[in-house]
Simulated assay, not measured.
Amino acid sequence: MPIRCTLNFRVSTVFLLVSTFLSCHSGGVESAVVTLDSIVIYKTHEWLASEPTVYFQCQGGNKTKLPDVQKEHVLYSFNGEESWQPLTEFESKKCKRCGFYEEDSIKSDDVFEEWEFCPSDFTAPAGKYVRFNAEEFNATFLCLQCTAYSNGSFRICVTCFFSILPTQIGLMQLYNTFLRRECQDLESFENICIA
Protein backbone atom coordinates (compact mmCIF):
# COMPACT_ATOMS: atom_id res chain seq x y z
CA MET A 1 0.00 0.00 0.00
CA PRO A 2 2.76 2.61 0.67
CA ILE A 3 4.11 2.09 -2.86
CA ARG A 4 0.66 2.68 -4.33
CA CYS A 5 0.17 5.87 -2.24
CA THR A 6 3.53 7.23 -3.44
CA LEU A 7 2.57 6.48 -7.02
CA ASN A 8 -0.77 8.24 -6.53
CA PHE A 9 1.01 11.27 -5.09
CA ARG A 10 3.32 11.42 -8.12
CA VAL A 11 0.39 11.07 -10.53
CA SER A 12 -1.50 13.81 -8.66
CA THR A 13 1.51 16.14 -8.74
CA VAL A 14 2.00 15.62 -12.47
CA PHE A 15 -1.74 16.14 -13.01
CA LEU A 16 -1.59 19.38 -11.02
CA LEU A 17 1.35 20.80 -12.98
CA VAL A 18 0.09 19.79 -16.43
CA SER A 19 -3.48 21.00 -15.89
CA THR A 20 -2.29 24.33 -14.49
CA PHE A 21 0.08 24.85 -17.43
CA LEU A 22 -2.67 24.02 -19.93
CA SER A 23 -5.14 26.33 -18.24
CA CYS A 24 -2.64 29.20 -18.50
CA HIS A 25 -2.08 28.58 -22.19
CA SER A 26 -5.53 27.47 -23.26
CA GLY A 27 -7.16 29.18 -26.21
CA GLY A 28 -4.06 29.31 -28.35
CA VAL A 29 -2.99 32.62 -29.84
CA GLU A 30 -5.37 35.44 -29.09
CA SER A 31 -5.29 38.31 -31.52
CA ALA A 32 -5.17 41.91 -30.36
CA VAL A 33 -7.54 44.15 -32.33
CA VAL A 34 -6.38 47.71 -33.16
CA THR A 35 -8.92 50.43 -33.88
CA LEU A 36 -8.53 54.08 -34.81
CA ASP A 37 -9.82 56.40 -32.07
CA SER A 38 -9.12 59.76 -33.73
CA ILE A 39 -7.09 61.42 -36.47
CA VAL A 40 -6.24 64.91 -37.70
CA ILE A 41 -4.43 65.39 -41.03
CA TYR A 42 -2.40 68.58 -41.35
CA LYS A 43 -1.85 68.56 -45.09
CA THR A 44 -2.97 66.64 -48.14
CA HIS A 45 -0.76 65.67 -51.04
CA GLU A 46 -3.36 65.99 -53.78
CA TRP A 47 -2.53 68.77 -56.25
CA LEU A 48 -6.01 68.95 -57.65
CA ALA A 49 -8.82 70.46 -55.60
CA SER A 50 -10.51 67.07 -55.08
CA GLU A 51 -11.00 65.53 -51.66
CA PRO A 52 -8.23 63.12 -50.62
CA THR A 53 -8.68 59.38 -50.09
CA VAL A 54 -6.72 58.55 -46.94
CA TYR A 55 -6.06 54.93 -45.99
CA PHE A 56 -4.14 52.84 -43.46
CA GLN A 57 -2.19 49.74 -44.41
CA CYS A 58 0.28 47.35 -42.85
CA GLN A 59 2.84 45.56 -44.98
CA GLY A 60 1.19 42.49 -46.45
CA GLY A 61 -2.22 43.54 -45.07
CA ASN A 62 -5.41 44.95 -46.47
CA LYS A 63 -5.86 48.60 -47.37
CA THR A 64 -8.31 50.23 -44.95
CA LYS A 65 -9.83 53.39 -46.42
CA LEU A 66 -10.93 56.12 -44.03
CA PRO A 67 -13.98 57.52 -45.89
CA ASP A 68 -14.72 60.30 -43.39
CA VAL A 69 -11.21 61.79 -43.36
CA GLN A 70 -11.29 64.41 -46.12
CA LYS A 71 -10.34 67.82 -44.75
CA GLU A 72 -7.22 69.27 -43.21
CA HIS A 73 -7.10 70.41 -39.57
CA VAL A 74 -10.37 68.68 -38.64
CA LEU A 75 -10.49 66.23 -35.71
CA TYR A 76 -12.21 63.00 -36.75
CA SER A 77 -13.24 60.81 -33.80
CA PHE A 78 -14.42 57.21 -34.08
CA ASN A 79 -16.05 54.72 -31.71
CA GLY A 80 -14.44 51.55 -33.12
CA GLU A 81 -17.69 50.21 -34.57
CA GLU A 82 -17.40 51.70 -38.06
CA SER A 83 -17.70 49.29 -40.98
CA TRP A 84 -14.02 49.73 -41.89
CA GLN A 85 -12.75 49.04 -38.35
CA PRO A 86 -10.55 47.37 -37.08
CA LEU A 87 -7.42 48.70 -38.76
CA THR A 88 -5.25 45.68 -38.03
CA GLU A 89 -4.67 42.82 -35.59
CA PHE A 90 -1.57 41.63 -33.75
CA GLU A 91 -1.17 37.86 -33.43
CA SER A 92 1.92 38.17 -31.21
CA LYS A 93 4.19 40.81 -29.73
CA LYS A 94 5.98 41.14 -33.07
CA CYS A 95 5.87 44.59 -34.75
CA LYS A 96 4.39 45.38 -38.16
CA ARG A 97 5.43 47.95 -40.76
CA CYS A 98 2.35 50.19 -41.15
CA GLY A 99 1.44 53.66 -42.29
CA PHE A 100 -1.06 56.22 -43.46
CA TYR A 101 -1.24 56.90 -47.20
CA GLU A 102 -3.17 59.02 -49.65
CA GLU A 103 -4.35 57.62 -52.96
CA ASP A 104 -2.97 59.47 -55.95
CA SER A 105 -4.73 59.39 -59.30
CA ILE A 106 -1.65 60.25 -61.41
CA LYS A 107 1.39 58.69 -59.75
CA SER A 108 2.06 56.24 -56.91
CA ASP A 109 0.28 56.83 -53.61
CA ASP A 110 1.63 59.50 -51.28
CA VAL A 111 2.95 58.55 -47.85
CA PHE A 112 1.95 60.47 -44.74
CA GLU A 113 4.26 58.27 -42.68
CA GLU A 114 5.38 54.64 -42.27
CA TRP A 115 6.59 53.24 -38.97
CA GLU A 116 7.11 50.05 -36.96
CA PHE A 117 3.75 49.52 -35.27
CA CYS A 118 4.20 47.41 -32.11
CA PRO A 119 1.82 46.07 -29.45
CA SER A 120 4.26 47.34 -26.82
CA ASP A 121 3.54 50.93 -27.96
CA PHE A 122 0.13 50.80 -26.27
CA THR A 123 0.05 51.99 -22.67
CA ALA A 124 -1.96 50.42 -19.87
CA PRO A 125 -4.68 50.62 -18.66
CA ALA A 126 -6.44 52.51 -21.47
CA GLY A 127 -4.58 50.73 -24.28
CA LYS A 128 -3.90 53.97 -26.19
CA TYR A 129 -1.10 54.86 -28.57
CA VAL A 130 -0.63 58.32 -30.10
CA ARG A 131 1.32 58.67 -33.35
CA PHE A 132 2.24 62.29 -34.05
CA ASN A 133 3.98 63.76 -37.08
CA ALA A 134 4.08 67.56 -36.82
CA GLU A 135 3.83 68.10 -40.59
CA GLU A 136 1.45 65.30 -41.55
CA PHE A 137 -1.02 63.95 -38.95
CA ASN A 138 -1.90 63.15 -35.35
CA ALA A 139 -3.59 59.78 -34.75
CA THR A 140 -4.73 57.93 -31.63
CA PHE A 141 -5.10 54.14 -31.72
CA LEU A 142 -6.83 51.81 -29.23
CA CYS A 143 -5.90 48.24 -28.41
CA LEU A 144 -6.89 46.89 -25.00
CA GLN A 145 -5.46 43.43 -25.67
CA CYS A 146 -2.08 44.92 -26.61
CA THR A 147 -1.40 45.93 -23.01
CA ALA A 148 -1.16 42.21 -22.15
CA TYR A 149 1.72 41.93 -24.64
CA SER A 150 3.45 45.00 -23.27
CA ASN A 151 3.01 44.00 -19.61
CA GLY A 152 4.42 40.57 -20.31
CA SER A 153 2.65 37.26 -20.54
CA PHE A 154 4.76 35.97 -17.63
CA ARG A 155 2.72 38.00 -15.13
CA ILE A 156 -0.50 36.72 -16.65
CA CYS A 157 0.66 33.12 -16.41
CA VAL A 158 1.82 33.53 -12.80
CA THR A 159 -1.50 35.14 -11.86
CA CYS A 160 -3.36 32.38 -13.65
CA PHE A 161 -1.27 29.71 -11.91
CA PHE A 162 -1.93 31.06 -8.42
CA SER A 163 -5.62 31.63 -9.06
CA ILE A 164 -6.12 28.06 -10.30
CA LEU A 165 -3.81 26.42 -7.75
CA PRO A 166 -6.43 26.08 -4.95
CA THR A 167 -8.87 24.39 -7.33
CA GLN A 168 -6.20 21.98 -8.53
CA ILE A 169 -5.15 21.14 -4.97
CA GLY A 170 -8.79 20.52 -4.05
CA LEU A 171 -9.24 18.20 -7.03
CA MET A 172 -6.03 16.37 -6.13
CA GLN A 173 -7.25 15.86 -2.53
CA LEU A 174 -10.62 14.66 -3.80
CA TYR A 175 -8.92 12.18 -6.13
CA ASN A 176 -6.67 10.88 -3.33
CA THR A 177 -9.68 10.49 -1.00
CA PHE A 178 -11.50 8.55 -3.70
CA LEU A 179 -8.50 6.22 -4.16
CA ARG A 180 -8.18 5.64 -0.40
CA ARG A 181 -11.86 4.68 -0.17
CA GLU A 182 -11.46 2.36 -3.14
CA CYS A 183 -8.47 0.72 -1.43
CA GLN A 184 -10.41 0.35 1.83
CA ASP A 185 -13.40 -1.15 0.01
CA LEU A 186 -11.08 -3.54 -1.82
CA GLU A 187 -9.38 -4.59 1.45
CA SER A 188 -12.78 -5.11 3.11
CA PHE A 189 -13.89 -7.20 0.15
CA GLU A 190 -10.70 -9.32 0.32
CA ASN A 191 -11.18 -9.85 4.09
CA ILE A 192 -14.74 -11.05 3.51
CA CYS A 193 -13.63 -13.43 0.76
CA ILE A 194 -10.83 -14.91 2.89
CA ALA A 195 -13.04 -15.44 5.91
Rank of each mutant, 00 (worst) to 15 (best):
E136N: 04
E136S: 04
E136R: 01
E136Q: 09
E136W: 01
E136L: 04
F137C: 05
F137G: 02
A139I: 02
A139R: 00
A139G: 03
T140I: 05
T140F: 01
F141Y: 10
L142N: 05
L142K: 07
L142C: 01
L142F: 01
L142Y: 01
L142R: 02
C143D: 00
C143M: 02
L144T: 07
L144R: 08
L144V: 05
Q145P: 03
Q145K: 08
Q145S: 06
C146W: 03
C146H: 03
C146V: 04
C146Q: 02
T147I: 13
A148F: 10
A148P: 01
A148M: 11
A148C: 05
A148R: 09
Y149F: 13
Y149V: 00
Y149I: 07
Y149N: 01
Y149R: 05
S150C: 00
S150T: 03
N151L: 03
N151M: 03
G152E: 06
S153T: 07
S153P: 01
S153L: 12
F154A: 10
R155D: 00
R155C: 04
C157Q: 12
C157T: 12
C157M: 10
V158F: 07
V158E: 02
T159A: 14
T159Y: 11
T159L: 13
T159M: 09
T159N: 14
C160S: 15
C160K: 08
C160E: 05
F161D: 02
F161L: 12
F162D: 10
F162C: 07
F162M: 08
F162H: 13
S163T: 14
S163K: 14
S163Q: 14
I164T: 14
I164P: 00
L165V: 15
P166N: 13
P166I: 13
P166T: 14
P166A: 15
T167K: 12
Q168A: 15
I169G: 01
G170D: 06
G170F: 14
L171R: 07
M172L: 07
M172E: 10
Q173L: 15
Q173T: 13
L174P: 01
L174N: 09
L174Y: 11
Y175F: 15
Y175P: 01
Y175M: 11
N176K: 08
N176D: 12
N176Y: 04
